[in-house]
């Protein structure tokens, strides 16, 4: 692979030579090189952006960890190896010792292993909750943005009602409806809460596309309405929504933690999840804050990673920031 800066310099030199050699055509010169799409040119800039690189590094590390977790974790997260050291009165949470660098939780299970394996569950909750919210919002937002009129009014009033309920309260209500709380009720609750956010964003984005010059141009050209919606409006409207998705992923992980904290999370703690771990640490918070610290730190770092990546992508895709 060539160093991007040298190749940039070389292409510039070649360009100057070409310019110097002949006088330009009336329309000006067009470079010989094949075209670079919007996304490709955004990527050109992103891969030199340290903010994006940091975000991407955190995100990739997190996903990799989630994938290989069972093989990397030093112990089985469900087995209470240090259970015999737990004394409910004097020592409810065993401290670090050789082989168990972060100590164990109140049931004697290795904290480090639980954190590592927890990455996988956390990723599942984050990704599926976000995906659910995204798809729901996609359908509603497209309907509202593409048709306008009474469809728009109807969809948006429903969305407004959903938005008027505090999101956590809504998530709590939804997960309380489930007869047996599980990981999937958590995912579902968070997904539903995120639907109006996505729907509103997409709708606004679709509306601005609808009144944009290039959509007007497509109408003037006599392009079919369906093609205008799916080929011109939706792809251009999705940019900000996809970026929002990376931000929502972080929110979803935090929401999952909140639900677990309230006892509405996944009761099956053989499959640890960071939010759930944070929730379970509450009764020891005063004396053993490290139980809460580690999962919280993991959540913050991962959320930061997604947010940095999302924000820098948004910046790179913004046509105004180009050149």
């Amino acid at each position: 692979m060539t160093d991007p800066l040298t190749s940039y310099g070389q292409s510039r030199k070649a360009r100057i030579d070409a310019l110097a050699a002949t006088s330009v055509a009336e329309s000006g010169t067009v470079e010989e090189a094949p075209g670079l799409s919007l996304i490709a040119s955004a990527w050109q800039r992103l891969r030199r952006n340290p903010v994006f690189l940091l975000g991407a590094f955190i995100t990739v590390a997190f996903v990799l960890l989630a994938l290989v977790a069972p093989w990397v974790a030093p112990h089985d997260p469900a087995v209470g190896y240090l259970l015999d050291k737990v004394r409910p009165q004097s020592n409810p949470v065993p401290g670090p010792e050789p082989g168990f660098p972060l100590g164990a939780d109140s049931r004697g299970r290795d904290l480090l292993s639980r954190l590592i394996v927890g990455a996988r569950q956390t990723l599942i909750v984050g990704v599926f909750a976000t995906l659910g919210g995204f798809l729901g919002g996609l359908v509603l937002g497209t309907l509202a943005g593409a048709f306008g009129g009474w469809v728009d009014s109807l969809v948006m009033r429903i969305v407004d009602v959903m938005l008027s309920i505090p999101s956590l309260l809504l998530a709590v209500s939804i997960s309380a409806l489930a007869t047996r709380p599980s990981q999937w009720t958590v995912i579902l609750a968070i997904a539903i809460v995120q639907i109006p956010v996505f729907a509103r964003l997409l709708r606004g984005s679709m509306l601005s596309q609808r009144s944009s010059d290039h959509v007007l141009a497509a109408r003037a050209l006599g392009i079919k309405q369906s093609a205008i919606v799916f080929r011109h409006m939706l792809p251009n409207a999705l940019g900000p929504v996809i970026v929002q998705a990376t931000l929502v992923l972080a929110v979803a992980i935090i929401d999952a933690a909140a639900l677990s904290f309230l006892g509405l999370g996944n009761p099956d703690d053989r499959k640890p999840e960071w939010g759930q771990m944070l929730g379970q640490s509450q009764q020891y918070l005063a004396d053993y804050p490290h139980l809460a610290f580690w999962p919280a730190a993991c959540i913050i770092v991962v959320a930061l990673g997604f947010t940095l990546m999302g924000e820098s992508t948004r910046e790179a895709l913004d046509p105004k920031s180009r050149r």
Binding site: G35, S37, L38, S212, D213, H214, L216, A217, A218, H232, P235, N236, P319
Partner: peptide, 10 residues
Amino acid sequence: LSSLDPRQSV
């Protein structure tokens, strides 16, 4: 610029 869809090649 705004009258051309930014995702379409010429």
